[in-house]
Amino acid sequence: MRLRTGNALAVQATDLTLAYQQRPVLWDVDLEVPRGVLMAIVGPNGAGKTTLLRTLLGLLRPAAGEVLVFGRSYLEQRGLVAYVPQRGSVDWDFPTTALDVVTMGTYGSLGWVKRPGASERSRATAALEQVGMQDYADRQISQLSGGQQQRVFLARALVQDAEIYLMDEPFQGVDATTERAIVDLLRALRTAGKTVVAVHHDLQTVAEYFDQVTLLNVRRIAAGPVDEVFTEENLRLTYGGRVAGIGGRANATPLDMLA
């Protein structure tokens, strides 16, 4: 199967609506991600951020709406998309090594039955090196720290050699070294022309780490370049009264509001 990128948007979702037992989680959400940008998805707990990612990946079926990856359906373009789930979504006591987890990223290109060989393992080793984890290749994964586990997940996405990287809270609970490593990695991906969409929790670093932001709270509140849409007004609309210290100061920046 030939994968096409063309000139279309990297990810284009239109009118996504998704409900768990009649309770809407995403309501008519549009998402346009141009190629080669780092986009943060920001919103309060229960805003549907993870649900949006999982819908983009075809893991959840929306009640309405469609998702296009470079102008075609996800099923056709699966090989262009890599996924970094939340660290807590798997059992880290599973009997396997860091290198083996990274090698799982190559399974998509292998297809059914075929086993990973020397070339898959060397790609996985290279990806581990890229995130500074080469010395931990043979460690059982429960012996890694949270930040190291997150880097293993990133390496697993890198080894997929995708065009689009969908990440669910890559910065969640990581140490400073890992945070630095992830930021460097995001920038390297952007330089290579890749597209990243990441669910992000830390409002203070949105402007520093990302080019674009989508503010989500069941509905899409705003989306676009960070300096245009990451405003106090939009944050207030997204978080309601739930951002500490909101309101009062006329010219407060988003960072002030969090202080």
Binding site: L57, L59, R78, Y83, F94, Y107, G108, W112, R156
Partner: peptide, 22 residues
């Protein structure tokens, strides 16, 4: 032995298995 990789992936990380088309 034939489906070792599929069994392992679907057990460890079913979401990734689904995203990769297994």
């Amino acid at each position: 032995s034939l489906f070792f990789k599929e069994l392992k992936l679907a057990t460890f990380d079913p979401a990734l298995a689904a995203a990769l088309g297994f």
